[in-house]
Simulated assay, not measured.
Amino acid sequence: MKTRHKRFILIMLGLLLLSGAAVLVLNAFNSNLVFFFTPTQVAADEAPRGKAFRVGGMVKEGSLLRDSETGRFVVTDTQKDVVVLYKGMLPDLFKEGRGVVAQGRLNAQGEFVASEVLAKHDENYMPPEAKHAMDQAAARRAPETTKP
């Protein structure tokens, strides 16, 4: 076999290995990708069924029910609500009327079963996606003014 053929085979083998590694990396990235949805999007059935995603907004006042190991609360974007169930200890900063992002899946009853709950960490912070969704919902609710 000529040196030229050997070099060609080595280059092709290297490209094949690089392609295989790229496919594995992209597959791992895609399987760990978690999208964010607002309660309005979840209510409109835009959220994936059977796949993990994040839902964020404000914890609705008066909606928090806790027992020894489970928490149940409602996340709202002031337009639609999503019931969230969480088994475990809620974060210390978690309170009604504050921002929250929960990661999990929808169950058969349409409730969001969270595997992780993240509370806002200071008075000025809200996830950008949740802030944007809250602003959009407020804009839709605001009465439109017309000029005479």
Results as ranks from 00 to 15, higher is better:
R7P: 03
I9R: 15
L10W: 13
L10D: 10
I11K: 14
M12Q: 12
L13G: 13
L13A: 15
L15E: 11
L17C: 15
L18W: 12
S19H: 11
V23Q: 09
L24N: 07
V25Q: 15
V25M: 14
N27W: 13
N27P: 04
F29G: 08
N30T: 09
N32R: 08
F35V: 04
F37E: 12
T38Q: 13
P39C: 07
A44W: 01
A44T: 02
D45I: 01
E46V: 00
A47H: 05
R49G: 09
R49N: 11
G50W: 04
K51P: 02
K51N: 13
K51D: 10
F53H: 03
V55Q: 03
G56R: 08
G57P: 11
G57L: 10
V59G: 05
V59T: 05
E61M: 05
E61Q: 13
E61Y: 04
S63N: 09
S63F: 01
S63V: 03
L64R: 06
L64E: 07
L65Y: 10
L65I: 09
R66Y: 00
E69A: 06
T70R: 15
T70G: 00
G71A: 15
G71C: 03
G71Y: 01
G71W: 06
G71Q: 06
R72Y: 03
V75C: 12
T76M: 11
D77F: 08
V84N: 05
V84F: 01
Y86Q: 01
K87C: 01
G88C: 09
P91R: 14
F94S: 10
K95V: 04
K95F: 07
G97H: 04
G97C: 08
R98D: 01
R98C: 06
G99P: 04
G99W: 05
V101W: 02
A102K: 02
Q103V: 07
R105Q: 15
R105V: 12
L106Q: 02
A108F: 05
A108I: 03
Q109C: 02
G110D: 01
F112I: 04
F112V: 03
V113I: 14
A114G: 07
E116S: 11
V117Y: 03
V117E: 11
A119Y: 06
N124H: 14
N124I: 07
M126R: 02
M126K: 00
K131D: 12
A133C: 08
M134G: 10
M134P: 00
D135F: 09
D135E: 13
R140A: 12
R140W: 04
A142C: 04
P143K: 12
T145Q: 13
K147I: 11
P148E: 12
